[in-house]
Design a protein around this nucleic acid. Structure first.
Length: 1005
RNA sequence: GCUGAAGUGGUGGAAUCGGUAGACACGUUGGACUUAAAAUCCAAUGUCCAUUAGGACGUGCGGGUUCAAGUCCCGCCUUCAGUACCA
């Protein structure tokens, strides 16, 4: 009987679904284990072979943990809000909900055919109102919370209100807007409700704030940094300006320190922790206040800066403000106004990315104003410069040119003095920033001190003056939480007199309204501005038509939607109790499952999703909704499977001047439009323009094709080959192109209909006289590169078990590696061999024969290795181990059920279908997933002798079989008297003989 | 620039503790079976020299430690990823 993988796989997939084999119970005596994949965005293109890599790895681990006696939660769902569906809706008018539904169907079918052990009864979709109801609820909780820096956690806003009522806000230590006014308890009580709300808003963990965004007037929308290329929009190439907009923000900065400290408690890779640390960007230093020198008539200003080097304060020779800094317009003297305004305008045009990319150019303008040095009282000129970023620190720096390279370059460029405050250091060429070897000089009371001492003293002196204090600064900025898009969670928010009001939990979810178009409105409002029914009635607590808006009970609803990361910041809790209608998850479920034990996903989420999730989890813990501080205990980033693209090389032509082009004639050029040279010519002939001989040859060919008598008309023609992607389906293993296939492919239309290919022999290909070889390049798999490989066809041709094994066999999970479909025959052949080991021509080959010593040795060697590999996520080496085991057992002609049955359990996490089938053929009634993992017995691996490598001066010359229990002396005797040793030594006496029992013998001579 | 990861046959990769480098596969070559093909099976396969026996060289490059280095140390080079005028 042969291995009919299609039938077997369909049979067991059906069995698992019908018997709910992988349904996890929220009540169990077994220990729990939670294995989670980063849930996919269901894109229209479906899955390619790269997508399941992480899912296969996590599935192996989940199945392994079940064999090991754990109650395993292994769910799956969809991150189904997002831009591509919205983009598609804009183009086609199709509702994103419909396309999303379609895409999910495809994903589900594709996932099912790979045989994952997901508990689909817990599926979540972020775009499902029953799910986003709870996303809205969490948003409300964030709104109703503030961060108490004294207790170092988030608290309900009521505790803040009572503080205000009893003591005002002077001594409230909260994470909030820095420029908040100070008021007493009495004043608080006197404030109008609106004023109180306005103040509270600045303390809430989610708040409304003016934020700078990339606004594209032509598209009427806000663009992400990614959507801007070279300063213009990626779509359409429209100009983009920086504009302030009122948006919802999340006060993640309140959690900066805890997010940093928490990294110590979780099992993530160093590189990932490093990314998060950099992103949080903690720096310790001091804040210093510089007073701006003013004439008596003017209002007094001061500039606050942050510095990591307060010890260098006597080296300050100027200050630099970001061009966007609030003070700039206030302090600039009339004579400099024009220059300053021009500079501000110029920088506003440049995107943040542009500004950062251009490090070389030094630019800035003097404001004409001066600040006073806190100690020396000397005047310090105040400049503006775009190397200072408005978004970091206070948007202003005290410039110490002798100690900071950027300040140094700026000073040099504008001829500002560079005072040296370092003992015995030459600063004529560059700044000196080595903290370790710092000895401060020319600095009054800091003279002679090292970095540490001087820093401490400087801070102390600043505090005495009331012009500074020690401070820790974080790079982490609050996260903008509004999106001017349609396909996202609506906010449960309506506005009364411009102040946001939360809708009560009882009336959630607030469902996305219908709109007739998914574009911004003509007045530049988000797409929800197009909804007719999008107002809130406080009497009926329902969404009603906008036309009814009045000032008594019907109010406008928020027009923004939430960003993509809203739904993905807490979904791992919803899986614990996915259908709960009363709570986001029950207390019992949360207590039982705690958090994710193993999380697998791509490294692209290192600073987005993984940071926001940690933030929300910490918040939810503070408020008592959950008991864990971190969402993901262990995290592994799977690498990417890359595609092997194929290129053809089309000739294109350039002309030094338009007359040449005219002279040749459009008709003639048309004939030369579709000519392709092969890869070898493209590469080996070098630059066509310099390889005169080849160019001449090629032009003669072109002349023939164009029907010219000779190539003289083409004399001035410049030829440039362009590399163009073609579908990998039309290329065989030898890189030869299927020209007919390409020409008749509907997707390329007429592109290749008249194509002329010049083959390997240098002649035009007609019929089968020659072949055309494509170029190859390993790149990310993507539809546009025509290099995607679909798992459907792999499952059809080789089966899911082969796909699973092969994806693991390709290499280490974390690594990037190219896909090559040809290689799958190796693991497929292995499965056939395995099948033959169990099932012969006339039925089962397995019987009750006693296992031989060799059988047991092979089995236990395999148990040990496979267990170690799974625990260490080294799945690729397990596959080799299985191959070796089957090769050995086949050679041993093993038929013993005592050996072959446990072997199936070892294999079942990797190749579950064939394992289930053989398991049941061996007479088992229960699914193999319920079987216990075989126990390793070291006694079967004890060897009586070892084949020692005998080395001379470290070089292995021959091997010798020596009993394991032999003494060193006896080993030496045997080795030294061996004829090959004598031959090697040629009469010399060895200086030293090293014998490591069980390992090696090395003779040094 | 900084941070992190990685450089091993024609290819993917193995060697997890300093101890026989190249496991296991793909590919290639030869052979068996077959009318033929597919499938299957067998053998060879790091490079170079040698008829063989065998030898030399070999884990990005240059040094070092060691009886012994892909593995440890020092200095470079290259690739990939993240991040960046962070005060």
């Amino acid at each position: 009987m042969n291995y009919h993988f299609n039938d077997i796989e369909a049979k067991w997939q059906k069995y698992w679904a019908e018997n709910k084999t992988f349904k996890a119970e929220n009540n169990s005596n077994k220990p729990k284990y939670y294995v989670l994949d980063m849930f996919p965005y269901p894109s229209g293109a479906g899955l390619h072979v790269g997508h399941p890599l992480g899912y296969i790895a996590s599935d192996i681990y989940a199945r392994y943990k079940r064999h090991k006696g754990f109650n395993v939660l292994h769910p799956q769902g969809y991150d189904s809000f997002g831009l591509p569906a919205e983009q598609y809706a804009i183009q086609t008018g199709q509702h994103p909900a419909l396309t999303t539904e379609e895409n999910i169907k495809t994903y589900r079918r594709q996932l099912d055919q790979i045989g994952f052990s997901f508990d689909w009864s817990r599926e979540v979709r972020t775009s499902d109102p029953n799910y986003y109801k709870w996303t809205q609820w969490i948003f409300i909780q964030l709104f109703e919370s503030w961060y108490n820096k004294d207790t170092n956690k988030a608290e309900h806003i009521d505790t803040l209100i009572s503080k205000f009522a009893s003591e005002g806000n002077a001594n409230v230590n909260a994470a909030c807007d820095e420029h908040i006014e100070v008021f007493s308890a009495e004043a608080w009580k006197e404030f109008s409700t609106e004023k109180q709300q306005d103040i509270l808003l600045q303390y809430r963990l989610t708040y409304l704030a003016e934020t700078e965004v990339n606004w594209c007037p032509a598209l009427g929308t806000v663009l992400a940094n990614d959507e801007i290329v070279n300063g213009v929009s990626e779509r359409g190439g429209h100009s983009v300006i920086r504009k302030k907009m009122t948006q919802w923000s999340m006060r993640i900065s309140a959690y900066a320190e805890r997010l940093l400290q928490g990294l110590e408690t979780i099992d993530w890779t160093d590189s990932l922790k490093e990314s998060q640390k950099n992103w949080i960007g903690k720096s310790v230093g001091a804040s210093v206040t510089f007073n701006v020198l003013s004439k008596d008539s003017e209002q007094a200003h001061s500039i606050e800066v942050f510095t990591t080097r307060p010890d260098t304060i006597f080296g300050v020779s100027f200050m630099t403000l970001a061009p966007e800094h609030d003070l700039v317009t206030k302090i600039t003297i009339p004579e400099q106004k024009e220059a300053v305004d021009a500079y501000i305008q110029a920088t506003a045009k440049r995107s943040e990315r542009d500004r950062m990319a251009d490090v070389k150019t030094i630019s800035g303008v003097f404001t004409g104003a001066y600040a006073e040095h806190p100690f020396s009282k000397e005047p310090i000129p105040i400049w503006i410069g775009d190397y200072v970023l408005a978004g970091y620190g206070t948007g202003a720096v005290m410039s110490v040119p002798c100690g900071d390279q950027r300040d140094y370059d700026f000073a040099k460029h504008f001829n500002i003095p560079i005072p040296n405050i370092f003992e015995g250091v030459d600063i004529s060429k560059e700044a000196f920033s080595d903290k370790e070897n710092t000895v401060i000089a020319n600095s009054d009371f800091l003279n002679g001190m090292n970095y540490k001492k001087a820093t401490k003293r400087a801070i102390f002196e600043l505090e005495q003056l009331g012009q500074g204090e020690g401070k820790t600064n974080y790079r982490l900025r609050d996260a903008v939480f509004s999106r001017q898009r349609y396909w996202g969670e609506p906010f449960p928010v309506y506005y009364v007199n411009g102040l946001p009001q939360m809708i009560d939990k009882a009336h959630l979810p607030i469902r996305l309204p219908e709109v007739e178009k998914y574009l911004p409105t003509e007045t530049g409002e988000p797409p929800l501005g197009r909804a007719d029914v999008w107002a809130w009635c406080t009497e009926t607590n329902t969404v009603v038509a906008n036309s009814k808006i009045n000032n008594t009970s019907i109010f406008p609803l928020e027009l923004n939607t939430m960003p993509g990361w809203a739904g993905s910041s807490w979904y791992f809790f919803r899986y614990m109790d996915a259908s709960n209608e009363q709570e986001f998850a029950s207390e019992d479920a949360l207590k039982y499952w705690e958090n994710v034990d193993l999380y697998i996903g791509g490294s692209e989420h290192a600073t987005g999703h993984l940071l926001y999730s940690r933030f929300w989890v910490k918040f939810m813990k503070d408020r008592g909704f959950i008991q864990v501080e971190e969402p993901f205990k262990k995290l592994i980033n799977q690498g990417m499977i890359l595609g092997t693209s194929a290129y053809v090389y089309r000739l294109s032509y350039m002309f030094a001047n338009p007359r040449e082009e005219e002279a040749l004639g459009a008709k003639l050029l048309k004939k030369l439009e579709h000519i392709y040279i092969s890869h070898s010519e493209f590469i080996s002939k070098g630059d066509l323009q310099t390889n005169k001989n080849y160019l001449k040859e090629l032009k003669e060919k072109l002349a023939k094709i164009a029907g010219l008598a000779d190539a003289s008309d083409l004399e001035n023609l410049m030829i440039v080959p362009l590399a163009i992607h073609v579908k990998v389906q039309y290329v065989n293993a030898s890189d030869e192109l299927d020209i007919e296939g390409l020409k008749t492919d509907g997707e390329f239309g007429e592109d290749y209909k008249d194509a002329i290919f010049i083959g390997e022999n240098g002649d035009i290909i007609q019929g089968n006289n020659d072949v055309y070889k494509v170029g190859r390049e390993v790149e990310k798999m993507s539809k546009s590169k025509y290099n995607v490989v679909n798992p459907d066809s792999i499952c059809q041709d080789y089966g899911a078990d082969s796909l699973r094994l092969y994806e693991m066999f390709l290499g280490p999970l974390e690594q990037y590696k190219p896909w090559n479909t040809a290689g799958i025959s190796g693991v497929h052949g292995f499965l056939k061999k395995l099948w033959k080991l169990y099932v012969g021509e006339n039925g089962l080959n397995v019987n009750d024969a006693e296992p031989t010593k060799d059988n047991l040795k092979t089995l236990h060697k395999t148990i040990k290795k496979v267990e170690e590999d799974i625990e260490g996520f080294s799945f690729n080496t397990s596959v080799s181990t299985f191959m070796i085991a089957v090769n050995e057992l086949t050679a041993q002609k093993c038929t013993s059920k005592q050996v072959l049955e446990p072997l199936l359990v070892l294999l079942s996490p990797y190749a579950p279908h064939i394992s289930e089938e053989l398991w049941s053929q061996l007479g088992n009634k229960e699914s193999i997933s319920t079987a216990a993992f075989p126990v390793f017995d070291a006694s079967h691996l004890v060897e009586s002798s070892k084949n020692y490598p005998i080395s001379f001066n470290g070089k292995m010359r021959f091997t010798l079989e020596i009993p394991m229990d032999m003494s060193k002396e006896d080993i030496e005797k045997i080795v030294m008297s061996h004829e090959k040793t004598i031959e090697q030594l040629q009469g010399r006496t060895p200086k030293k003989i090293i014998i490591v029992p069980g390992k090696i013998v090395n003779i040094v001579g």
